[in-house]
Protein backbone atom coordinates (compact mmCIF):
# COMPACT_ATOMS: atom_id res chain seq x y z
CA UNK A 1 0.00 0.00 0.00
CA UNK A 2 1.61 3.24 -1.14
CA UNK A 3 2.19 6.21 1.10
CA UNK A 4 -0.36 8.40 -0.65
CA UNK A 5 -3.09 5.90 0.26
CA UNK A 6 -2.07 6.30 3.88
CA UNK A 7 -2.35 10.06 3.70
CA UNK A 8 -4.98 11.16 6.19
CA UNK A 9 -4.81 7.91 8.12
CA UNK A 10 -1.22 7.97 9.25
CA UNK A 11 -1.97 10.09 12.29
CA UNK A 12 -4.55 7.57 13.49
CA UNK A 13 -2.13 4.71 12.89
CA UNK A 14 0.60 6.47 14.85
CA UNK A 15 -1.78 7.20 17.71
CA UNK A 16 -2.80 3.52 17.69
CA UNK A 17 0.82 2.39 17.95
CA UNK A 18 1.52 4.82 20.77
CA UNK A 19 -1.64 3.78 22.60
CA UNK A 20 0.08 0.48 23.40
CA UNK A 21 3.30 1.97 24.73
CA UNK A 22 5.67 4.93 24.26
CA UNK A 23 7.87 4.57 21.23
CA UNK A 24 10.61 6.41 19.32
CA UNK A 25 10.22 7.02 15.61
CA UNK A 26 12.11 3.97 14.39
CA UNK A 27 10.11 1.66 16.65
CA UNK A 28 6.85 3.19 15.43
CA UNK A 29 7.86 2.43 11.84
CA UNK A 30 8.77 -1.12 12.85
CA UNK A 31 5.44 -1.63 14.60
CA UNK A 32 3.53 -0.29 11.61
CA UNK A 33 5.46 -2.65 9.38
CA UNK A 34 4.97 -5.72 11.56
CA UNK A 35 1.32 -5.17 12.41
CA UNK A 36 0.40 -4.41 8.81
CA UNK A 37 2.39 -7.40 7.58
CA UNK A 38 4.53 -5.09 5.44
CA UNK A 39 1.44 -3.64 3.77
CA UNK A 40 2.44 -0.01 4.28
CA UNK A 41 5.16 1.50 2.12
CA UNK A 42 6.03 5.08 2.92
CA UNK A 43 9.27 7.03 3.06
CA UNK A 44 10.24 6.62 6.69
CA UNK A 45 11.16 10.27 6.99
CA UNK A 46 7.55 11.32 6.46
CA UNK A 47 6.69 9.90 9.87
CA UNK A 48 8.51 12.66 11.73
CA UNK A 49 6.50 15.64 10.45
CA UNK A 50 3.41 13.69 11.54
CA UNK A 51 4.88 13.13 14.99
CA UNK A 52 5.78 16.80 15.36
CA UNK A 53 2.32 17.87 14.21
CA UNK A 54 0.70 15.55 16.75
CA UNK A 55 3.02 16.82 19.45
CA UNK A 56 2.21 20.42 18.62
CA UNK A 57 -1.48 19.56 18.76
CA UNK A 58 -0.99 18.14 22.24
CA UNK A 59 -2.06 14.62 21.29
CA UNK A 60 1.35 13.14 22.03
CA UNK A 61 4.27 14.30 24.15
CA UNK A 62 7.93 13.86 23.35
CA UNK A 63 10.90 13.37 25.67
CA UNK A 64 14.62 13.17 24.94
CA UNK A 65 17.13 10.64 26.18
CA UNK A 66 20.79 10.05 25.48
CA UNK A 67 21.32 6.51 24.19
CA UNK A 68 24.78 5.31 23.22
CA UNK A 69 25.91 8.86 22.63
CA UNK A 70 22.95 9.72 20.46
CA UNK A 71 19.94 11.90 21.26
CA UNK A 72 16.76 9.89 20.99
CA UNK A 73 13.23 11.24 21.23
CA UNK A 74 10.40 9.04 22.42
CA UNK A 75 6.72 9.81 22.19
CA UNK A 76 3.78 8.91 24.41
CA UNK A 77 0.06 9.42 24.00
CA UNK A 78 -1.47 12.17 26.11
CA UNK A 79 -4.97 12.08 27.59
CA UNK A 80 -6.08 14.22 24.67
CA UNK A 81 -4.44 11.74 22.33
CA UNK A 82 -6.40 8.85 23.82
CA UNK A 83 -9.64 10.77 23.38
CA UNK A 84 -8.74 11.74 19.82
CA UNK A 85 -7.86 8.14 18.99
CA UNK A 86 -11.19 6.90 20.32
CA UNK A 87 -12.99 9.43 18.15
CA UNK A 88 -10.92 8.55 15.09
CA UNK A 89 -11.54 4.85 15.63
CA UNK A 90 -15.29 5.47 15.71
CA UNK A 91 -15.13 7.55 12.55
CA UNK A 92 -12.96 4.98 10.83
CA UNK A 93 -15.33 2.16 11.75
CA UNK A 94 -18.30 4.03 10.34
CA UNK A 95 -16.36 4.89 7.21
CA UNK A 96 -15.05 1.37 6.63
CA UNK A 97 -18.51 -0.18 7.18
CA UNK A 98 -19.99 2.26 4.69
CA UNK A 99 -17.28 1.55 2.12
CA UNK A 100 -17.64 -2.19 2.62
CA UNK A 101 -21.36 -1.83 2.09
CA UNK A 102 -20.89 -0.02 -1.19
CA UNK A 103 -18.18 -2.32 -2.45
CA UNK A 104 -20.00 -5.44 -1.34
CA UNK A 105 -23.34 -4.24 -2.68
CA UNK A 106 -25.03 -4.61 0.70
CA UNK A 107 -27.07 -1.57 1.78
CA UNK A 108 -25.79 0.16 4.87
CA UNK A 109 -26.63 -0.18 7.78
CA UNK A 110 -28.34 -3.51 7.23
CA UNK A 111 -25.06 -5.41 7.54
Amino acid sequence: MKGNVLKGHLEMLVLSVLARQPRHGYAIIEDLRVWSDDAFELPEGTLYPVLHRLEKSGLISGSWDDVDGRRRKSYALTDGGHAALDEQRRSWHEFSVAVESVIGGVPWPSR
Binding site: G25, I29, E44, Y48, H52, V67, R71
Partner: peptide
Amino acid sequence: GDRDDILAETADHLWLT
Protein backbone atom coordinates in the same frame (compact mmCIF):
# COMPACT_ATOMS: atom_id res chain seq x y z
CA GLY B 1 13.95 26.93 14.61
CA ASP B 2 13.69 23.25 15.50
CA ARG B 3 16.19 22.07 12.90
CA ASP B 4 18.70 20.66 15.40
CA ASP B 5 16.06 18.48 17.01
CA ILE B 6 14.81 17.21 13.66
CA LEU B 7 18.32 16.35 12.55
CA ALA B 8 19.05 14.57 15.82
CA GLU B 9 15.94 12.42 15.37
CA THR B 10 16.79 11.78 11.75
CA ALA B 11 20.36 10.74 12.50
CA ASP B 12 19.22 8.42 15.28
CA HIS B 13 16.65 6.80 13.00
CA LEU B 14 19.14 6.34 10.17
CA TRP B 15 21.79 4.81 12.40
CA LEU B 16 19.25 2.49 14.02
CA THR B 17 18.16 1.35 10.58
